[in-house]
Each structure stands twice: as C-alpha cells, then as structure tokens.
C-alpha cells in the first residue's frame, strides 16, 4: 500500500483556555484509501488527544464532520486524502459559526432555522386506512433533496447567512422544498409565513456557494428557486 507523509495545519481554539485561535501543524503517515477523518482521528488518538472533532457514522450519513479543507467545505469522512492537493492541508471549522472547541462549532442557529420550516410531513386530511401512497414520478420530484444529511456545509458557506443569521439558509429551505413538493404533504400554509417572510427565500441572491459546497451534490439553489416559484404562483411546478 502506497504511503506518504502529509502535513495538516489544524485550527485550534479552546475558548476556556486560549485568548486567540491558532493553528498547529501535524505530520501524518497517510495511505491509499485514507479519508481526512481517518487522519484527524489518528491525530486525536495518537498525537494530540486535546484535539476536538465531531463525527459519528464515518460514512457520510450523519453529517457531523463538515469542515473547511483548504478553504472549501467538505465532509471529512467522505474526502479521500488523495483528492486533496497542496503540501499542507489547512483544516478549519465551519465558517461563520461560533467555535465551541477546535473543529466543533455551535450548530444551534442552523438547527433553529431548520425547526422554523417544520421539516416533517404535515397532513390535515384524515389518515387513510392503509398508507399515503406516492407515485414513482412524485417521488422523483424530490429525489435529490431527500439526500440532504444536514451537515451545514451549504448554509455556512452562504454569504447571506454570514451576515444574517436570521436567513433560513439553503439547508432549511431545501428541507422545506422536500416536503412542499412531497405529493402527500399538506403543510403549505403552515410554512408559507416563514419561507415567504423576513429571512425567507427572497434572501437568496444566487451566489451558488451552497451548490459548490454540498457533499451530496444537491442543487440547493434549484430547491430555493422552486420554493420561490411555489410562493409566487401558489401551486407546485411538477412539470
């Protein structure tokens, strides 16, 4: 197996101890197939136990390990080290969020915005005897947005969110799109005042940073524009 020494310049900051954030460099022997998260876990377990990082599933499902790598946002568990270029890899927490410690950020503003759009199926009609059916075509309409794992890479890369934490952000709006365009959902009225109100879809100005950042390749701007269209016309564009 091909092995190579690589340098990692990692953002370090413990608000309880450090007056300012700083970077610390680590050299790790990497091998073929190694992910960025593997390297960070190796550093944390063998070189510097004080390094904090949030992770869980290690297979790009939980969305915990979103971070900035060489100034672009990625999921550490999904990023193969071979795909990263440069002598030194600069690892930082998600931008514009409050740092709890090192690579761990406070996701509260992100999650608060998500709660606002009611990210669950809303129905007002009585439950059918068996189940709420959905055709293959109807499922395809929301196909890409279902993949969202709420890692926060899109929202924290958005320049509008950087300056206004009241903006729902691409992740919350994509989640809203996933339910608004779900043929079984009846929660349009319940979500309208949030999506069409202050900090709603109109705050998206097509910088496309969210599309570039999404580790699941979801076209979040498409979802936002579809919600804009739904609010404007009052009906789902299912063509």
């Amino acid at each position: 197996m091909k092995k190579k020494m690589r340098k990692f310049k990692i953002y370090r900051y413990d608000p309880e101890k450090d007056s300012k954030p700083y970077y610390r460099e680590y050299s790790v022997e990497t091998h073929e197939g190694m992910t960025l998260l593997d390297a960070i876990i190796h550093i944390s377990e063998n070189m510097d136990p004080s390094l904090s990082v949030r992770y869980s599933c290690r297979m790009s499902v939980c969305g915990s390990c979103g971070m900035s790598v060489n100034d672009s946002l990625k999921l550490a568990c999904k990023t193969q080290l071979e795909t990263l270029h440069g002598d030194v890899l600069k690892i930082e927490p998600l931008p514009s969020m409050k740092v709890i410690k090192d690579l761990v950020v406070d996701m509260e503003p992100f999650l608060d915005n998500l709660k606002k759009v009611k990210p669950y199926l809303i129905t007002h009609t009585p439950d059918p005897a068996k189940e709420r059916l959905q055709s293959v075509y109807d499922r395809e309409l929301i196909d890409s947005s279902v993949d969202c794992i709420l890692c926060g890479c899109c929202t924290t890369s958005c320049p509008v969110f950087w300056t206004d934490k009241g903006y729902l952000g691409p992740a919350a709006i994509t989640k809203a799109f996933r339910f608004l365009y779900d043929s079984r959902d009846e929660g349009y009225e319940d979500r309208l005042h949030v999506l069409g109100g202050v900090g709603g879809v109109d705050k998206c100005h097509h910088a496309y940073r969210c599309v570039e950042a999404c580790p699941k390749n979801i076209n979040t701007t498409y979802a936002i524009d579809m919600v804009k269209k739904l609010i404007l016309t009052g009906k789902r564009d299912t063509e």
Partner: peptide, 21 residues
C-alpha cells in the same frame, strides 16, 4: 488568525456565482 467570513470570500471570488454576487 482571521476566522471571519471575509477571508473565505476572497477565495470564493474565484467562483463565478460568488464573483457575480
């Protein structure tokens, strides 16, 4: 170390969408 989004916006300017924005 500047962790403000401004630093990111410099890198982001290389992307067409951000440049236009």
């Amino acid at each position: 170390i500047d962790m403000s989004p401004k630093r990111y916006s410099k890198t982001a300017l290389k992307e067409p969408g951000m440049f236009a924005w």
